[in-house]
């Protein structure tokens, strides 16, 4: 893991080949566009795909951020906007990656099926710091709902970010920071 290296600035959505060279433990600063989507948006989106319908927004090649932001105060682009627990999206993620999403951002463990799909599709799972909603919200320069606006915090948001900090959590080789990291510090209990 390369946690001591300085963070690398990367454009989002990723250019061709970028996802494939990212390594678990590497720190990145994302610049560009992310799409915020969580539980209910994933359910509706994959339902549309399964019915053979065109989803309301084209997410192929895009980076999805598992987030349900607070409403901003007037005159501000964003309130608090940290990651939500990724595991709740495990059911939908293989389908989303197969559809063409290139990276997902969240926090916490993923299922073996998701890790496998990440390897198969050459995608990547990125971790943002859970509970740092005020800090991460500062990196968001613009945010508006682009699909399912009636869902409020669960709508799909187009989010413009500057130097949004993440750590590579599962890379294209399947190396998982949530396994490797704790294993290093785990001690046997008597």
């Amino acid at each position: 893991m390369m946690s001591r290296e300085p963070a690398e600035r990367i454009e989002a959505p990723f250019a061709g080949g970028v996802a494939a060279r990212l390594v678990t433990g590497q720190r990145l600063l994302l610049n560009g566009v992310l799409y915020g989507a969580r539980d209910e948006a994933h359910l509706r989106f994959t339902d549309a795909l399964d019915r053979g319908e065109e989803p309301p927004v084209d997410l192929r090649g895009q980076v999805i951020y598992y987030v349900g932001p607070t409403s901003p105060r007037p005159g501000r682009p964003c309130g608090a906007a940290g990651p939500t627990t990724s595991g709740r999206m495990d059911k939908y993620t293989p389908r989303m990656l197969e559809y063409g999403v290139s990276a997902v951002i969240g926090k916490g463990r993923r299922s073996p099926e998701v890790a496998e799909a990440i390897q198969k599709q050459g995608a990547v799972y990125l971790a943002a710091t859970g509970g740092a909603g005020a800090l991460l919200g500062r990196c968001i320069k613009e945010m508006h709902a682009v699909a399912y606006p009636e869902l409020g915090p669960e709508a799909v948001y187009r989010i413009t970010v500057e130097d949004f900090p993440v750590t590579v959590a599962i890379d294209g080789r399947g190396d998982d920071i949530y396994r490797i990291g704790p294993a290093r510090y785990r001690m046997e209990c008597e």
Binding site: R73, A80, G82, T84, T129, G131, G133, A134, G137
Partner: peptide, 14 residues
């Protein structure tokens, strides 16, 4: 994060 939330009256967590 806690310092920003307190000073700017932004929620600690979304």
């Amino acid at each position: 994060n806690a310092a920003i939330a307190r000073e700017e009256r932004i929620p600690l967590c979304q």
